[in-house]
Design a binder for these strands. Structure first.
Lengths: 281, 281
DNA sequence: ACTATCAGTCGCACGCTGTACGAGGGTGGG
DNA sequence: CCCACCCTCGTACAGCGTGCGACTGATAGT
């Protein structure tokens, strides 16, 4: 770049015509969309204001006219992708609705792997996140949850989606890092696990017995779906117990006790381990 | 030395610490411990090699003799804190053991909030993480899980711990950012929710009805414990169903069907919504 | 038509980051 | 004594987020 003191290259004649950009003006929406694209491509590590500016064919600092800074931009990007999660209509039964939301949420998180980390850093309270929570609360309310149970149930499913997406993202990153070709992480992990077999007996044994099958697993989606179904089972069971408790309370007028437990047909039948009705709160 | 070939067998975990001769003042362990302390204090944002060097009263680049770089150092720090999670002995019943591990894991994650984000970025396969997984696998194997169910069950509880810790960390960060004094985030959120009440009816109504009670909640631990109990209920139920299926299969020789469902006493009793036995895979 | 205003863009600069490199200091074995 | 090696660190470079003020082009007021 010519220096400012240079009388020739800085003169009007020599100065090139102002570079015309595709669009005459930037806009916040355009910036956020480009930011999401850049984040999708390079993750949080590969994202910088300068690069984003370049992607928009604009100076890096031009963005600061529309956006307060990188932090706020990440908030906006996070809410933008939250808006990608489709929400079921009110006619869908609560369990299907909840499962669908959780699954679509996880899909979105995997698509935009950089968001996962942000969930430990900033609360999602943008308009799209609110719309999301609104629907989630509606689903669980219609299911029969009330008060803090609603928050508990929905945050449980959310936590699962985030956690499952995190482990999937970590796995994907590891495979990608280790030669994008045929190298499976499983194979890479193999000698490592084998070398440590004496230190980690359960792990090593499990690994030996299941390593081959793992190749055929459909992978993270199946794992996440299994988790979501178990969670929904647990929530349904809890709802059922609560219902039984309420009924027996109105019938006898006494304080509810452990009957709900047995009514659910779980206690003492699995036979695998003794179990107390409640955790040690 | 850039590693382009094999990220695992060439990684930190396989490489022994450099034998110290003479009287060096730094050591890998010392560096990692200081890194954890610095990360605890300032999070990922406040962590830099220069600052870590200063904390150790050493030059920033001295660390590079013991550690390959920031990335590897984060791996080491992650494994270091994984070692803080206490693991129950083999005499503890599986459900208590699993609940305990999940709870302690979550506690650790909250204590070291910076780790949470790392779980979406790198796989935890250091020695301490392996020890952790080994115990977890042992617990679920003893419970009656087998094959991929073991992986599913343990990763379910792990995902929950990570996700729950993430939302707690986000909440804590928000409260800390908004005037460290008495300003609760709830109060800050209040006018925001109120102003958007028409857009988010369920949310707003729920908020109105439960805002006051929220003050009395014991908070994130209770939420996480609720989630863990639901998950364990769901897992136990699944185990029970599997058991019933196996029994009926050996008795009749036919293929197992939905009887396990009803034996569990859940289906069709909640009365809140119709339910199909399985999601739409 | 001429000028004043101003929304929008961007170059520059500052202090920060990770880390490659090589010059040095200290200590051991010969 | 010197040499060889382990360890430390100053310097340097490319890149980061962003505050500041100079600039441009269009529009509004006269």
């Amino acid at each position: 770049m010519p220096r400012k003191t240079d009388p020739i290259s800085d003169s009007v004649w020599m100065r090139p015509e102002r570079p015309r950009r595709g669009r005459p003006q930037l806009s916040r929406g355009e910036i956020v969309t480009a930011a999401v694209a850049l984040l999708d491509a390079g993750g949080l590590e590969g994202f910088s204001m300068r690069r984003l500016g370049a992607a928009l064919e604009a100076g890096a600092t031009s963005l600061y006219f529309y956006v307060d800074g990188k932090d706020e931009l990440l908030d906006l990007a996070m809410d933008q992708v939250m808006g990608e999660v489709p929400l079921p209509g009110p006619e869908v039964a609560w369990r299907e609705a909840a499962a669908g939301i959780a699954r679509d949420m996880r899909k979105m998180l995997v698509r935009h792997h950089w968001v996962i980390g942000l969930f430990g850093t900033r609360m999602a309270i943008g308009p799209n996140a609110m719309r999301f929570s609104d629907r989630f609360i509606g689903v669980f309310t219609s299911a029969g949850f009330s008060g803090r149970d609603v928050a508990w149930a929905s945050s449980l499913l959310m936590s699962h989606a985030v956690g499952a997406a995190a482990s999937e993202a970590a796995y994907r990153r590891a495979t990608d890092a280790a030669g994008a070709e045929q190298a499976e992480v499983l194979e890479l992990l193999d000698p490592y696990v084998a070398s440590q077999a004496d230190r980690f007996p359960h792990y090593a044994q499990w690994w030996r017995e299941n390593r081959i099958d793992m190749q055929e697993w459909s992978g993270p989606e199946e794992t996440a779906d299994f988790g979501a179904e178990r969670i929904l089972d647990g929530l349904e069971l809890w709802l059922h117990r609560k219902h039984v408790e309420a009924v027996s309370a109105t019938r006898t007028g006494g304080t509810p006790n452990g009957h709900a437990q047995e009514a659910a047909g779980v206690s003492g039948k699995g036979g695998t381990a003794a179990r107390r009705p409640d955790g040690d709160h």
